[in-house]
Structures are given as C-alpha cells and as structure tokens.
Simulated assay, not measured.
Amino acid sequence: MFVAKTINAYQEYYENTFKSGQIGFVPTMGFLHDGHISLVRESVKNNDFTVVSIFVNPKQFGQNEDLAAYPKDFNRDRERLETEGVDLLFFPDEVEIYPEKNQLSIHILPEFTNILCGRFRDSHFEGVALVVLKLFNIIRPDNAYFGQKDYQQFQLIQTMIDEFNLAIKLHAMPIIREKSGLAMSSRNSYLSPSDKLLAANIYKGLLHIEEQVMANNLSLKDVSLEYTNYLKLKSDKMKMQYIEVYDRRLKPLSQLETGNMFMGTAVFIGNVRLIDNILF
C-alpha cells in the first residue's frame, strides 16, 4: 500500500498506476472501526483500485467541539488498511488541503442546514461539502462509499454530486453496530464501559418509536416527547438534543409513508454527542 502525503505524490501515482482502472474511494477522519472497514471491503470488492483518505477536517468542527481531542492512531489505521487490500492511503496535513485562506466557499440553503445536525452545528455541512469536493477533485474516483450513520451528510454529498454534475457514483452502506446495538463511531472511544452500555438505548429507543408509530399508537408530532421520556426512564445521564422524522430525501412528511421514512437523533451522554438513525 502506497502512502501519499501530498497532492503531487497522489497525482503522480494516479498517472502511473490508477489512470486505466476504476477507483473506489473511502474518505475518513481516521481512528478506523468496523464501520469504516465495511466501506473499504465494499470498495475493494467492486473496484480495480481502492483509495482511503485520513484527514481530520478542521472546517467541519465548531469552536467548542472536539477537534483537538479527536482520537487518532495512524499506525493502527495503516496496518488495518494494508491488511484489507487498500492500494493507496492519502494522508495529507491541513496545509496541504488548505494552503492559504479560502477565497471561495460553499453555501448550503437553510432548508437543508436548519434540520437535524445542521441546526446545532453552525457551518458544519459547509465544511463537509468543501473538503469532500476537494477530495473528489484530488482523488478522481468513480465510486465513493459513505456510511448511513451520517445520513444527512450522505444526502448532502449526493445533492452536491447531482448539482455539480460530478461523474461519481455514491454508495450508502448500512450502519455497523456493536452487539449491544450501539452504532459504531470513533467517538465511542470517549465512553466508559458503563456509558457504552447506556448508549445502546439510543438505538433501542429509535426502535421503540418506530414500533409505536407503525402501530398507530403515536403521532409524528408526539415523537420527541415519547423519545425523551424513553431515555429518561433509562438514565438521567442521557440528554436528547433532537429527534426528527422526514422522508428519505429529508423532506417534510405530512403523513406516515411506510418504506419512505427516516428518523434521526442526537443524544448526549455526559459531554459525548452521539448520532443514530433508522429507515422504516
């Protein structure tokens, strides 16, 4: 596996090795878990070459978020990717991606940023869109793989591909969960063993809401109160930030649409913020 730390090094490798084959791309921020590896395996299986990037993007973190503390283990990540058959690891530093003050930015309409995580993470999705667009232009993939856990992010990237006429096929891969049901996340490393068990109730609560909605025991307008009460019964340590229901394109629902619904939530356990969602 070749490790490219600069854009020039990647471009040279691309011209010499990748140019004639189909490229799959998995962008990550590192500290890889089995969820990331499921994306890598899908890419390796379905492409001639697979590229993985590790870059902790400062532009998608807010002032009081965990940029400085975000977990890292480059050597472990490199070994895992090499074992999985990845052809190239793109590992740039911040100066390589943002060499000087940006003169251009990406503006996202409020109808997208004023829902779900966008309501609470100012300029987060502008930062996501900017770095992904830059990475797409650098890597020049045919296929890109994203996890469903960051569902709002996936929908944003799909919209960007459509509206900017990018010749990339986007693939959403299912959430990989721990045995308890907790969605795998690099931020799970912040949790104590007891808090990890507690965090499994985030997903169990979503399943409870789904069951109640589908049995016509709960209206869409009462979802937030029911979910809050569910979490409180488990522990006062869990604080819901939001729970919202949309169709699968993240458009408002006027009524139940079985098979076309998305429900997403963000929950704090102490100062650790975790997200999860289900489709139903």
Results as ranks from 00 to 15, higher is better:
S20H: 11
D222Q: 07
Q241M: 10
L253E: 15
K59Y: 09
P193S: 02
D122E: 15
S20G: 12
G85T: 04
H33V: 05
T6N: 11
M1W: 04
N143L: 13
A172S: 15
Q212D: 13
K204H: 14
Y10Q: 08
F55W: 01
G62T: 01
I37P: 00
T6S: 14
V132W: 08
I7E: 11
K72G: 11
V131N: 12
K179I: 11
G181P: 02
N64T: 07
R140D: 12
T228I: 12
I161M: 06
I176L: 05
V52W: 02
S20R: 10
L135C: 13
N201P: 02
T83A: 07
L166V: 03
V26N: 04
Y203I: 08
E178H: 01
T265F: 06
S235P: 10
S53M: 08
M214Q: 14
Q60N: 01
G35D: 03
L156V: 00
Y151P: 00
L89Q: 02
N217T: 06
Q103P: 05
A200N: 03
R249G: 11
G35W: 02
N16V: 11
A129N: 13
T6F: 07
E100V: 10
R41N: 12
E211G: 04
I106L: 09
N277Q: 08
Q152P: 01
I275A: 04
Y98A: 13
L233R: 15
Q63L: 07
P27W: 00
I269N: 11
G147Y: 02
D195E: 06
F268M: 12
T50P: 02
R248D: 15
N216W: 03
R76D: 08
E82C: 03
T258L: 12
K5L: 11
A172M: 13
V245P: 05
V3M: 09
A68S: 07
I108T: 09
M184V: 04
I176E: 12
E178S: 04
Q63V: 09
